Computed example of a mutant assay.
Amino acid sequence: MKKIGILGGSFDPIHLGHIQLALQAKEELNLDKVLFIPAKRQPFKLNRKVTSEEHRVRMLEFALQGIEGLEISYIELENDEISYTINTLRRIKDFYRNREIFFILGTDAFINIELWHEAAQLLQECSFAIGSRPGYKEEELKSCIDRIRQVYNTNIVLLNNKELLISSSDIKTKIGRGVSIKALVPDAVERYIDENGLYK
Score class of each variant (00 low, 15 high):
Met1Leu: 02
Thr85Ser: 15
Arg48Ile: 10
Ser167Ala: 14
Ser167Gly: 11
Ala188Lys: 14
Glu78Ala: 03
Lys33Ala: 01
Ile101Gln: 03
Ile156Gly: 08
Glu61Pro: 03
Thr85Tyr: 08
Arg97Lys: 14
Met59Val: 07
Tyr192Met: 06
Leu89Lys: 04
Gln24Leu: 00
Leu159Arg: 09
Ser127Asn: 07
Ile101Arg: 05
Leu77Gln: 08
Thr107Met: 11
Arg41Trp: 03
Glu140Arg: 08
His15Asn: 08
Leu159Phe: 09
Ile82Ala: 13
Val57Glu: 05
Glu81Gln: 11
Glu54His: 10
Lys26Ile: 00
Lys142Ser: 13
Gly131Asn: 05
Lys2Tyr: 04
Ile19Trp: 02
Ile82Tyr: 12
Ile14Trp: 06
Asn87Gln: 09
Asn161Ile: 15
Ser73Thr: 13
Ala39Lys: 07
Glu76Met: 08
Gly69Cys: 02
Glu100Asp: 12
Lys182Ser: 06
Glu190Arg: 15
Val157Gly: 00
Leu164Ile: 11
Ser143Glu: 15
Phe110Gln: 12
Leu31Ile: 06
Asn196Ile: 06
Leu60Glu: 00
Leu29Asp: 11
Gln42Arg: 02
Ala63Cys: 04
Asp80Gly: 14
Thr51Ile: 14
Phe44Gln: 12
His18Asn: 10
Ile111Tyr: 08
Lys49Ile: 15
Gly131Ser: 10
Leu165Thr: 01
Glu61Gly: 02
Ile72Ser: 03
Gln65Asp: 14
Asn87Glu: 14
Ile75Trp: 02
Glu68Val: 00
Tyr136Asn: 13
Asn87Met: 02
Val151Ser: 09
Arg149Ile: 12
Tyr199Arg: 10
Thr173Arg: 15
Pro38Asn: 11
Lys26Pro: 03
Ser127Ala: 15
Asp12Met: 13
Asp146Cys: 03
